[in-house]
């Protein structure tokens, strides 16, 4: 009987899961930023400004969603930046202002993104190389191809294409709403489908997943393909926002896509965290940048704040680990 008394606490819901704790932390940080913002500028709290923040988080959130999935399996995708660059120049270059080309080009670009992601996944699975190296190599190749295609901004978009970025529904940007919905959908899929749980399982213990007959290889390839897909969507969104593609548009996303992921509580070793945390992380970063703009802090110095946020997020995480 003793074992039941040792382990068998009555079945009550535990007060705080790690995910909720993380959401609360991000919420508190946001509240602090909002409070400061409200103090320094009355425009900060106006709906128009908040809608602006909502819109500005779109691209980073979208790349980071794909990154979240690879990180959940214990991997990482460092080809996202170059992939976005390549796909953005292809999108605007091939459409070149011609409305009839929009659908076929976008379809092709999405397909290409998925294909590149699949190649990454196959490299990780078949060559048994660290994902960091595979995707780094892939990133170099893609960047080279992008530069071969063009070395300056290229092409253009037809009228109306920019509504992906600038269109509004009820005052909120279309792209932002779409990304929000995509996140919710992915979160539900991760929680409520066998494949979703397998992604967590593979990140939690790859060896166990193999022994238990989970399709580890398929899951691994899938997450990199998904990362490619979300990179492609980001590229299209960026073309809509800027009006044309540039061969270095995506460069900064390679590393910055990891920030919302870890700020949102997904652990780099895999298996723990929630993509909704990533979304909140992206909103938090956008809100922070917005505040710093109000404070007239030069863009470059805003980086310091971003770095400090990463450190804070990670340090809090470690604290929780120790208590457990």
């Amino acid at each position: 009987m003793s074992s039941t008394t040792i382990s068998g606490k009555p079945a009550v819901r535990r007060p705080l899961t790690p995910a909720t704790a993380r959401f609360l932390m991000i919420g508190m940080l946001m509240a602090i930023i909002v409070a400061i913002g409200a103090l320094v500028a009355d425009r900060f709290l106006r709906p128009a400004n908040l809608a602006n923040v909502f819109e500005q988080a779109t691209d980073l959130a979208l790349v980071a969603l794909g990154q979240s999935l690879t990180v959940l399996t214990g991997g990482i995708d460092l080809s996202v930046g170059s992939l976005i660059s390549l796909l953005s120049v292809l999108t605007s270059g091939l459409i070149d202002g011609n409305g009839a080309m929009v659908l076929p080009v976008c379809a092709g670009v999405i397909l290409l993104g998925v294909l590149v992601g699949t190649l990454n996944g196959c490299g990780v699975v078949l060559l048994k190389i660290h994902p960091l190296i595979v995707t780094l190599g892939m990133g170099a190749v893609l960047q080279g191809v992008a530069l071969l295609y063009t070395r300056s901004p290229v092409g253009g978009i037809p009228d109306g294409f920019d509504s992906i970025a600038y269109g509004r529904i009820g005052g909120l940007s279309v792209g932002g709403i779409a990304v929000l919905l995509i996140f919710v959908a992915v979160a539900v899929l991760l929680r409520r489908t066998a494949t979703g749980r397998a992604i967590y399982a593979v990140g939690d213990d790859r060896h166990a997943a193999t022994l238990l007959g989970l399709k580890v290889r398929r899951v691994t390839i899938l997450v990199y393909a998904a990362s490619g897909l979300f990179s492609a969507l980001t590229a299209i969104y960026l073309v809509a926002r800027f009006g044309s593609g540039q061969p270095y548009t995506g460069a900064d996303y390679t590393l910055s896509s990891v920030t919302p992921v870890v700020v949102g509580g997904i652990v780099l070793s895999g298996g723990r965290g929630n993509v909704l945390g990533t979304l909140l992380g992206a909103y938090l970063l956008a809100l922070l940048n917005n505040l710093l703009n109000f404070l007239h802090v030069p863009t470059q110095i805003q980086l310091v704040a971003e770095g400090l946020i990463i450190m804070a997020a990670v340090a809090v995480h470690v604290e929780r680990e120790k208590r457990a």
Binding site: R197, D204, D205, L211, G271
Partner: peptide, 8 residues
């Protein structure tokens, strides 16, 4: 040796 996912 157990084959469990520690965080599931």
């Amino acid at each position: 040796e157990f084959v469990l996912f520690p965080h599931l």
